[in-house]
Write a protein that binds this DNA or RNA. Structure first.
Length: 989
RNA sequence: GCCCAGAUGGUGGAAUUGGUAGACACGAGGGACUUAAAAUCCCUUGACCAUUGCGGUCGUACGGGUUCGAGUCCCGUUCCGGGCACCA
């Protein structure tokens, strides 16, 4: 009897062995080079893992194992992102406390992960919801609170490089004490607020006022921001949770509300986040996404004088506009303010007051979302006029919602000829349009392109105001030159300044939720104060009622023991609050991204209770060499994490400016959703091929009818379907709604379902569970198959059909090592040249493929090699003993088993990755196609080292060539060694 | 609207980066073994024409171009996916 490939036995055995031997435990080892591989840690949802989850884990595990075989000291950890909204939603849905469900889900995940044979060092596991872990989330938050961002101040320690970074807030307070805001260069003055004061003023203020002022600079700060507030749900909602002004869940009204929230000053790091992208090895598309998100734009801020007639007198104020098109100053025909801008109130004339107030009321009634979708032109005249400093023209100032308060200065100059939004507005309000680019036709639409030659700038010389004897003229310049020239002019005559703006917003950092990190903050007489560092972590109190409350009180308000006793430095009952020594603690919790922002640092030193990470560990592991995860985190986690790391880098905690050197974005594995069709208002289901399709233009989807009755699609579980044929008996047992249903079958007696490729999700009943695959084929087959499916970066639907091919391959691979009688086939016979060629071809291919993450082609290379060796009847130990090492990254269980069978006592993980030797691959001759006029006519063998001349003369001498040379003359010959021989001929004469 | 990435057999996907397109796998068809099934093995499988032989023609979304030679490079078009979006 041949020895059977018993994957169940093998895999179980090695799971136990690995644990017993501690095969995957990692220690810092200064003698070896480190390599840090990381997956985005999973969110343990109630549904468990589906086949899509392991894709990235397998890919990174292959790389980690490969690097280890190459002699690197590899860190490959795993943990759980366990705090946040989904965990809480799941708990609410199942009526269980999140503490309970989260730990249940984690256990289930662990069980599933363990089956797949990953080389994770579980001793380093982190859970964001564990106090040992969030201790350091809270710690980092406190440090952000205690820092501001900027270049060294005169009050900073001497000798610091003049680069902007996080600096202790004490340097700022020392400055303010000495100089006030005079000459201060620190990031973070609140938008639109005039924050200038003298040292005397500062000294005169009380603690509360100073605290408020410093909030404008702290990297973690309390700020007033507009949020989508849903009173019925008692929580803030994200933009995507609001649809048409009502909550997505429940349809409750949502209002715009200004709320005091904790925020992180991510925007301070805009330029560094942008610059850092140049130094990391990420895909161009994800870098581009981040660049868009950061949204740097270079432009100019220009001061505009405004006059409003109030009664008989004229009142003069001024405002600042931001533009990237300084060259279009001569085309300005009006100005626009954002409705939320504080200037609106200042400039509005009494005559226009009523109209403006009404307009602002209307704008306030609209949600952020409505404003995004609906671009109809709205606006109102303020009654005031702005004076264009370049032309001296007096242009009306409008208030319109198309100008956003949060970007730039909340005020713009409108150039209808060269901006489509201004154009639409000008047409609507019948305002003049002055074209500025030669040849641009602006009678139908604006000319927005940044190409062309400037004209009408000015229309006539007197239309350009003189400053110190100089007036601006841009006529004849290209747009680029005109922009530069205008900037120079504006700067030289102090009409404004050159300015860079970023779209990146500060992150709102608090949630009215229970299941998150509590803030280590208490309110001492209304002043937010940090709980002393050595008292951390502040543990999340257990509360029975964790649901958001209707009044908007955060659930932490239900905690009875939730006040800070400053004197005794501990948490006490909130009834003891006296505002003298016992103070209320912050009731908000941190958002999901708090815990996931620096977890990669914690893996380096997960049990340290003195620091987030020890200096030694951080110095050894540096940063993540290879990070694997979904691209959906491009503008979330991957921005926050980079921000967080840069902050910790400024503090010296993190040793690298960028946390993730190389990033691979694995694609999604989609599921095949299946639909059965129920005739409306009946319990009859009709086979899909019997339905008539009609396309509904209004709903933009197909509707289905059977004998005039509309049929509605209903999800059927993927396990009920074979191909596209429904197992009727099975579905009757699956859910009550089908038990007594009538199924109308097609002519073949089958019920056909319709199918769609969708994201794998429990609610779509298209989830394929990796456990079933492991059960039927084994983890090695699953690993191999998921890699074989295609490039890891690509999204693709799960199709179980091809898995047999990988299973067959592993069986063949296994059989290579065993004789018919079940004894080991490997012997001491010498490997043939053919054997060695196959082996080294494989080594070369697999090595190159792993380095470039082309795992699908390396699996194919294995299949070819095994077929060849099998045909060669190779028994040589010289060859066979290399194979388990090569396959170990992909299929570790079978590799270990064969490695042991070959008589090795150590784990295959500690073997050495084989080097390929070119000498086995060198051919004595190479077969090349011979072309005439670029068409391959026949093939010939050439010596590998043949020169072009030799190749050509060999072709000319060949009998086959005479056919094509007959009656022809040679025009040209092209011969590239090992590549191609081409003879260009044409008829003689 | 702007930006990014794509389009190759019935299917998933290869192609040394400009050098014989379709590796490998699935599916399909045919055959061997078997009482039978499963498992295993062998052959065929881009299209069309020829098939008693060689073989020939066309083919990488579409239209052009560069080149001895293009799936690969350039220009234009169409379609699909992703991101951003009154960001001045």
């Amino acid at each position: 009897m041949a020895k059977e490939y018993n994957f169940r036995e093998i895999e179980q055995k090695w799971h136990q062995e690995w644990v017993k031997r501690g095969t995957y435990r990692v220690k810092e080892d200064k003698g070896r080079k480190k390599f840090y591989v990381l997956n985005m840690f999973p969110y343990p949802s109630g549904a468990g893992l589906h086949v899509g989850h392991p894709l990235g884990y397998i890919a990174s595990d292959i790389y980690a194992r490969y690097k280890r075989l190459q002699g690197f000291n590899v860190l490959n950890p795993m943990g759980y992102d366990a705090y946040g909204l989904p965990a809480e939603q799941y708990a609410i849905k199942t009526g269980q406390h999140p503490e309970k469900t989260t730990f249940q889900n984690i256990d289930r995940y662990r069980e599933q992960l363990d089956r797949m044979g990953f080389s994770f060092d579980w001793d380093r596991e982190v859970r964001t919801c564990s106090p040992d872990y969030y201790h350091w989330t809270q710690w980092a938050f406190q440090r952000m609170f205690e820092h501001f961002f900027g270049c060294p101040l005169p009050t900073s320690p001497k000798g610091e490089a003049n680069v902007p970074k996080a600096r202790p807030i004490e340097e700022l307070t020392a400055y303010l004490e000495k100089y006030g805001t005079e000459g201060l260069d620190a990031y973070g003055v609140a938008q639109g607020e005039d924050l200038n004061f003298s040292a005397e003023e500062w000294k005169g203020w009380d603690e509360k006022k100073r605290s408020d002022v410093l909030m404008n600079y702290r990297l973690a700060f309390l700020g007033e921001t507009m949020v989508n507030w849903c009173p019925a749900l008692g929580t803030v909602l994200a933009n995507d949770e609001v649809v048409n002004g009502v909550s997505e869940r429940g349809g409750y009204p949502v209002e715009q509300k200004k709320m005091r929230q904790w925020c992180l000053r991510v925007s301070a790091y805009s330029q560094r986040l942008l610059d850092g992208l140049e130094t990391i090895d990420w895909s161009e598309s994800i870098k581009e996404t981040q660049r868009n998100w950061i949204g740097r734009s270079e432009g100019a801020e220009i001061e505009i004088k405004a006059v409003s007639k109030k009664g008989d007198s004229e009142e003069e104020t001024s405002f600042t506009i931001f533009t990237t098109r300084a060259d279009t100053m001569f085309g300005v025909t009006f100005f626009v303010l954002a409705p939320e801008s504080e200037l609106v109130d200042k400039v509005t004339t009494p005559e226009q007051r009523k109209a403006v107030d009404e307009y602002i009321k209307y704008v306030k009634s609209r949600t952020e979302r409505e404003r995004m979708i609906d671009h109809t032109v709205t606006g109102v005249f303020s009654g005031a006029y702005g004076i264009n400093p370049i032309t001296g023209d007096k242009c009306p100032i409008y208030v319109a919602e198309y100008v956003l308060a949060g970007y730039g200065t909340g005020a713009i100059m409108a150039v209808p000829a060269h901006d489509s939004r201004d154009y639409a507005f000008a047409k609507h309000f019948d305002l003049p349009i002055i074209p500025l680019i030669e040849g641009a036709d602006v009678s139908q639409e604006s000319y927005d392109a940044k190409e062309g030659v400037v004209m009408n700038s000015p229309i006539s010389p007197e239309k350009s105001v003189e400053y110190d004897g100089e007036s601006l003229c841009l006529n004849g310049l290209s747009i680029k030159e005109a922009i530069a020239e205008t900037k120079r002019f504006v700067k030289a005559h102090k009409l404004g300044r050159v300015k860079v703006n970023y779209r990146l917003r500060d992150a709102i950092f608090s949630r009215q939720r229970y299941w998150g990190e509590p803030f280590p903050v208490y309110y001492k007489k209304g002043i937010p104060t940090m709980i002393p560092e050595e008292c951390l972590p502040i543990q999340l109190p257990h509360v029975e009622s964790f649901l958001p409350t209707e009044t908007g009180e955060p659930p932490l308000g239900n905690a009875t023991k939730w006040a800070w006793d400053e004197k005794n430095r501990k948490i006490v009952d909130k009834n003891l609050i006296d505002e003298e020594t016992v103070f209320p603690i912050e009731l908000y919790t941190m958002p999901g991204f708090a815990g996931s922002s620096a977890y990669y640092l914690r893996y380096m030193d997960p049990h340290n209770d003195k620091a987030l990470v020890s200096d030694d560990a951080a110095a050894y592991w540096q940063n993540v060499d290879l990070y694997v995860g979904g691209s959906e985190h491009a503008t979330g986690h991957l921005i926050y994490s980079r921000f967080w790391n840069k902050f910790l880098f400024d503090l010296g905690v993190s040793k690298k400016d960028e946390p993730f050197q190389k990033l691979i974005n694995q694609g999604m594995i989609q599921g095949w959703s299946s639909f059965v069709y129920r005739l409306r208002n009946t319990n009859k289901f009709v086979s899909f091929d019997l339905l008539e399709e009609q396309y509904d233009e209004a709903k933009k989807k197909s509707l289905y009818y059977y004998q005039g009755t509309e049929a509605d699609p209903v999800y059927a579980d993927i396990s009920m379907v074979n191909g596209n044929v429904l197992n009727v008996e099975k579905i009757r047992q699956w859910a009550a709604e089908f038990r007594d249903a009538e199924f109308i079958l097609n002519g073949n007696g089958q019920y056909i379902v319709s199918q769609a490729i969708e994201k794998m999700s429990k609610s779509k009943y298209n989830v394929v569970n990796p456990d079933d695959i492991c059960e039927n084929y084994g983890a090695d087959t699953l690993r191999l198959y998921e890699m074989f499916l295609g490039p890891i970066e690509q999204s693709k639907p799960w199709d179980v059909a091809g898995i047999d091919g990988c299973f067959r391959f592993l069986k063949k691979f296994w059989q290579l090592f065993w004789d018919k009688d079940g004894s080991l086939a490997a012997d001491d016979s010498e490997a043939t040249a053919e054997n060695m060629k196959t082996l080294h071809k494989l080594i070369k291919k697999v090595t190159a493929d792993i380095e470039s993450f082309s795992y699908n082609t390396s699996v194919a290379a294995f299949m070819v090699a095994v077929n060849e060796l099998s045909n060669q009847k190779c028994r040589s130990r010289q060859v066979l003993s290399v194979l388990p090492v090569l396959i170990a990254p992909f299929a570790p269980h079978i590799a270990e088993e064969l490695w042991e069978a070959l008589g090795n006592e150590t784990s295959v993980c500690d073997a050495k990755w084989p080097a390929f030797d070119e000498k086995y691959l060198v051919e004595s001759s190479v077969r090349l196609g011979v072309q005439f006029n670029g068409k391959v006519k026949f093939s010939m063998d050439f010596p590998v080292d043949a020169t072009p001349d030799e190749m050509v003369s060999q072709v000319m001498a060949a009998d086959e060539a005479q056919r094509f040379l007959n009656g022809m003359q040679v025009v040209k010959t092209i011969a590239v060694p090992k590549r191609i021989v081409n003879i260009v001929v044409k008829p003689k004469g």
